[in-house]
């Protein structure tokens, strides 16, 4: 970033009377950026396989310099992001921003992003592969299998086999680290675009 861009960004005109809740979208994007950076750092030490996952998190927490801090930031920011996204949705709902031009698209994108955030939380909480993670995954798989008609098929797709195993962990790690970030990135870009076009703040 050049000094000129930075200066332009820092001196853009803003209404000093606006409320704290006005910047929730930017705050969410910032928190997402923190997740990306710390997530990449964590992926340097995490081993997404049934045998190595638990031990690799242990190594990260107790042997890697500041590993506990990076993981802590990733965890706390994840929960903060969930809260901020929830507040963002609540604000959009009560201020009826979805009635503005392009507002309905923005609402759909925001709801999609909030579901994505929950999917991040779900897949991320499984990665340490301890007892809690394992049983949570079993439970999720059972839940998925309750979907009418395609449930059992979806459940197999989720588990990567008839039982929750190391294959499930690999799938969830791939979703958490490879697919979801790009989806979130795409949603953010789309959101920026319609905001620019529609005059939505």
């Amino acid at each position: 970033m050049s000094a000129g861009t930075l200066r332009a960004f820092l001196s853009r005109p803003v209404d000093y009377r606006r409320s704290f809740f006005w910047d929730l979208g930017r705050l969410a994007v910032f928190l997402f950026g923190v997740e990306v950076v710390t997530g990449i750092l964590l992926s340097l030490y995490y081993r997404p396989d049934g045998e190595g996952a638990y031990a690799s998190v242990g190594t990260l927490m107790s042997h890697v310099t500041l590993g506990w801090l990076v993981r802590g930031i990733h965890l706390v920011t994840a929960h903060a992001l969930t809260v901020v996204v929830g507040l963002y949705l609540a604000r959009a709902f009560f201020l009826r921003t979805f009635l503005r031009p392009n507002g309905s698209v923005g609402w759909v994108l925001a709801v999609a992003f909030s579901f994505l955030t929950l999917a991040f939380l779900l897949t991320g909480s499984v990665l340490p592969w301890d007892e809690q993670a394992y049983w949570r995954t079993v439970m999720t798989a059972e839940l998925v299998s309750e979907v009418p008609v395609v449930g059992p098929w979806l459940s197999d797709l989720f588990r990567g086999g008839p039982e929750v195993s190391g294959a499930t962990l690999v799938r969830l790690a791939a979703l958490h680290g490879m697919l979801f970030p790009w989806l979130a990135f795409g949603l953010i870009l789309l959101g920026r675009r319609i905001r620019r076009e529609g005059g939505m703040k």
Binding site: H63, V64, T65, L66
Partner: peptide, 11 residues
């Protein structure tokens, strides 16, 4: 500096 220390694998 802390980032560099994090990237350096533990003994």
């Amino acid at each position: 500096y802390p980032l560099g220390r994090f990237l350096l694998p533990p003994e």
